[in-house]
Design a binder for these strands. Structure first.
Length: 881
RNA sequence: GGGCGGUUAGCUCAGCCGGUCAGAGCGUCUCGUUUACACCGAGAAGGUCGGGGGUUCGAGCCCCUCACCGCCCACCA
């Protein structure tokens, strides 16, 4: 175009548009708000859930980026001081898992490298990959402030972790103690209860005889107690046999002793309420070192636990002849030996629940060890109160119950991990076992208890659970513990948008730590999205090969289409399926919008009859103009309301419907009639201007969900503002103000609806009469009132071309013939010319087929169709013929 | 063993405080050389809103119950 605005091609090509648009946003500085702002603007802040540093883009990211970006862009347009802080997570156990596999391929392992070399390898590896995911997020259009990009292992996070831990320690919320923890023998670390995922399995329940000790202390071959177990290998750590106190069967032997096979240990037979007499034999072997229930029972009876498995779950030296065997080999061997000895009384299959490591799938082994714990009772009570009392809302609200249930039943948090990649616990031991916790980067200068110098202190080797640093994320990213300008301006944040699957892992921890450390809820709203499932409703996974790669989708149909598909027809907390049909529909909408803009923008303005501006004001608006402006007003109000209540799916569906149906299918079709009206330049020009006005606001409304195509169209709008002055740069849509809703015009809406009803009814009559679409026929109208007469007179200008009719007003008193359609403006029916050209008798099948054939022949002979329609469509029509 | 969610047109899903809520898209059928768009337009067919009971003037929407499907939590050997 002459004025340098970009020309719009017939089909929207996202691939050539998106990178350029993203660069223009970056260059404009729109992503980066200033911390110090003199205005009293509202704030809107989201801290991005940090993706794993080793990861790459998947549909889950596409979903969260879309949801958050919609909120962020909306608030930015509202004029709020808007910040979206991005970052990545170091993902301790997950990252080690990846690196360990790489090392294994080189024939190396953790142990042979040593801690220092291992961590060097980790940093080297991450420095290559750490930007991958954030670069991919940009493909989706994420308008995050990359100048504030953070990493959970950067120095700011490290400091926040130390300070947070020290404050917890000083306040008495941290303790170290022996406990039976979940141990993954493959990852060789403790894992939290949440990382211990329960799976239903069918195992075996063995019944084993423990002979009673005779008077001489030797096993009595004729007297025994039978115990049931699913894990025979743990018998090596048995310290007692327990029965229910009221169980008559066993009353005589309570107080006696049984002899543990293989090891000969004497096991007291004790009575304990916890035993279920109905299960198995009613007698239970007690293994406090390897079973949480037994651990408790053992404590009640003063029994000392025995560990019989090492950190890789091999039988240790306490296991006698079985020492060195893997736990499952030991199980098989023990069962075999018992069978030989005649002490295997029975075996049967048994449905049970087995804990597995969330990361690697290995069966978790309860293991006795000394661990760091965070006392959660008080922290959880406070975090629960925040939600109960509405200071933080969870969307959808049903998750508030889930949250409450978890908080009420929370157990202390084992925060230590026996890994290397992560924040090392800032605790030092002196030779006298005194513990000093320090938040200094260099550690303490001396033991806090006995004053021994730092040189004699040894730092704890455990690191923190990854979720400890993530739990600080909303404020550590803003500079906490320092009172930075960012922290002052942007904390607490506004919305925490994340998946419901990490409500406990992450949201709960942020609430607990945030309240304790900053005395305020870290966000006022938690918005939980659902999971994206593959076609058929199954979970996407690489092994199933049903993963849709968002990067490929973006390449194919554009980021806007992917975003729209992920947003429409969804509600928070509900899983959704991403289907090709939905993706195509979204792509088609981007193209529709594009072409509507081409129509509105891609023509010279009708000549002005006077100075610009004045001209538009000349004369009253037409009914379609009043109607579309009113519809725009209603849509703006409703879209705003939906965004405010975080109904993102509702918002997207609404604006799409408005643009496609109201604007394109109705208004623009009617505007064509006015635009073609060469005799009325003013009306023509006004139609042109209305199209531009409405399009402009429509682009604003759609921008949050489809930022690229709207921004590109925006740039092509003709100059119509202060930026037409030389030297004034046109603002980008990303920074344009959110539209104000104009006034509704209910009279126009009612008038338009009545007219549209007549048009639809007329089209319906035509179809029923089997008229070819091109044929213009007579339509008789019998207005039901004087007002209806006026409405029809005024509307026939649009009615006639849109319904392809010549309208005739029937004389007053005319009786509508059979077959007439009733509308709110009166009866309508087709004239003689319609009946004359088509047989009034029902068309027979052969006639139908013939017509269909003729139509297809004509269609396929038409170069306008074959040239422009996609091959697939042309092929389909040919096949039909 | 607790708790939660789902069950609405062939398919994928919307339906906020019970009163045009029986909807959308895709698919199907019919028509279309209306120059913004065939990644389009017009028209049509298609559902006793999982079953049963109840509350109400009125119920996909509230209550009870049953049946499937899914998820979360949970230390019974």
């Amino acid at each position: 175009m002459a004025d340098g605005r970009p020309e719009l091609s017939p089909r929207y090509a996202p691939g050539s548009v998106e990178p350029r648009i993203y660069q223009s946003w970056l260059a404009s500085g729109a992503f980066t708000p200033a911390a110090e702002k003199p205005s009293g603007a509202d704030r809107f802040v989201i801290t991005m859930p940090p993706p794993n540093v080793t990861g790459s883009l998947h549909t889950g990211h596409a979903l969260f980026v879309t949801a958050e970006d919609i909120m962020i862009r909306y608030h930015r347009m509202r004029g709020d001081d808007t910040l979206w802080v991005p970052g990545v997570d170091h993902a301790g156990i997950a990252a080690q898992f990846v690196l360990d596999k790489m090392l294994a391929a080189e024939g190396l392992d953790r142990a042979s490298l040593g801690r220092e070399a291992y961590l060097e390898r980790m940093w080297a590896f991450l420095n290559e990959t750490r930007d991958t995911i954030s670069l991919q997020l940009r493909r989706l259009g994420a308008s995050a402030d990359w100048t504030r990009n953070r990493f959970t292992m950067d120095e700011g996070s490290a400091r926040a972790v130390r300070v947070a831990f020290k404050r917890l320690w000083d306040a008495g919320y941290v303790y170290r103690g022996e406990a039976l923890v979940n141990w993954c023998p493959r990852c060789r670390t403790t894992i939290s209860d949440l990382e211990n995922v329960h799976r239903d399995q069918v195992g075996t329940l063995w019944t084993i005889r423990y002979h009673l000790a005779g008077p001489d202390g030797a096993p009595d071959p004729g007297a025994w107690v039978a115990v049931a177990t699913t894990r025979p290998e743990t018998m090596l750590g048995d310290v007692a046999v327990a029965v229910h106190p009221d169980d008559e069967r066993y009353r005589p032997i309570v107080g006696r002793e049984a002899i543990l096979p293989f090891l000969g240990r004497r096991l007291p037979i004790i009575a304990d309420q916890a035993v279920d007499p109905a299960f198995g034999t009613g007698a239970v072997k007690i293994t406090p070192g390897h079973d949480p229930d037994d651990y408790e029972t053992g404590k009640r009876h003063g029994l000392t636990p025995i560990s019989v498995l090492d950190e890789e779950a091999r039988v240790n030296e306490a296991g006698g002849e079985f020492a060195g065997l893997d736990r499952f080999d030991a199980r098989a061997r023990i069962v075999e030996r018992l069978r030989e000895m005649g002490d295997l009384e029975g075996e049967r299959s048994h449905a049970m629940v087995v804990g597995h490591c969330d990361r690697c799938g290995t069966v978790v082994e309860p293991r006795l060890s000394v661990q760091w714990f965070i006392r959660t009772a008080d922290l959880a009570a406070r975090a629960l109160a925040s939600v109960r009392e509405g200071r933080t809302k969870i969307v959808p609200s049903r998750f508030e119950k889930v949250y409450a249930h978890w908080m009420e039943n929370i157990r202390d948090w084992a925060v230590g991990r026996q890994l290397w990649w992560g924040h090392r616990i800032p605790a030092w031991f002196c030779p006298d076992e005194h513990i000093t916790v320090s938040d200094e980067a260099d550690g303490p200068s001396a033991c806090a208890t006995c004053g021994r110098p730092a040189t004699e202190l040894v730092q704890e080797s455990d690191i923190f659970d990854t979720w400890f640093s993530s739990g600080l994320w909303p404020f550590s990213t803003l500079g906490w513990p320092d009172e930075t300008p960012d922290l002052r301006r942007f904390y607490p944040t506004s919305v925490m948008e994340t998946g419901y699957d990490i409500l406990f892992f992450w949201v709960a921890r942020m609430m607990m730590l945030g309240l304790f450390l900053t005395d305020v809820e870290p966000f006022h709203t938690v918005y939980l999205h659902g999971l994206v499932r593959a076609q058929g409703g199954v979970k996407m996974s690489k092994t199933k090969g049903n993963v849709t790669d968002p990067v490929e989708l973006i390449d194919e149909i554009g980021a806007d289409a992917v975003r729209l598909a992920l947003t429409t027809g969804t509600s928070p907390g509900a899983d959704q399926r991403l289907t090709m049909a939905k993706l195509e529909r979204s792509r088609n909408f981007a193209n529709k919008l594009w072409n509507a803009a081409r129509f509105v923008v891609g023509r010279e303005p009708p000549a002005a009859s006077s100075a610009a501006g004045e001209d538009h004001a000349a004369g009253p608006d037409t009914l379609p103009e009043r109607w579309i402006r009113s519809r725009l007003a209603a849509t703006t109000t409703e879209a705003t309301a939906r965004l405010d209540r975080l109904d993102l799916g509702g918002y997207a569906g609404l604006v799409m419907e408005f643009a496609w149906s109201d604007l394109c299918d109705w208004y623009l079709e009617m505007a064509k009639i006015d635009l073609r009206d060469a005799e009325r330049a003013a009306s023509s020009r006004r139609a042109w201007q209305t199209g531009l006005d409405v399009l402009s606001d429509t682009l604003r409304l759609i921008h949050p969900v489809m930022p690229f195509v709207t921004e590109e169209i925006w740039a092509s709008l003709p100059p119509a503002g202060p930026w037409t002055e030389p030297g004034v740069i046109r603002p980008l849509l990303i920074s344009a103000p959110w539209p104000d809703a104009g006034a509704r015009d209910l009279e126009a809406e009612a008038g338009f609806d009545a007219l549209a009803e007549v048009i639809r009814a007329a089209r319906n009559l035509r179809t029923e009469a089997g008229l070819p679409a091109g044929q213009t026929v007579t339509l008789h109208l019998a207005p039901s009132s004087a007002d209806a007469t006026d409405a029809i007179e005024a509307g026939r200008r649009y009615l006639e071309p849109l319904a392809r009719v010549r309208s005739r007003l029937a004389a007053p008193g005319t009786v509508a013939p059979a077959g007439a359609a009733a509308t709110s403006l009166g009866a309508i029916w087709l004239g003689e010319d319609a009946a004359a050209e088509t047989p009034s008798a029902p068309r027979d099948r052969i006639e139908d087929l013939r017509r269909h054939r003729d139509r297809l022949r004509a269609l396929l002979a038409d170069t306008a169709f074959t040239g422009r329609a996609p091959e697939a469509v042309v092929r389909r029509e040919r096949e039909r013929l």
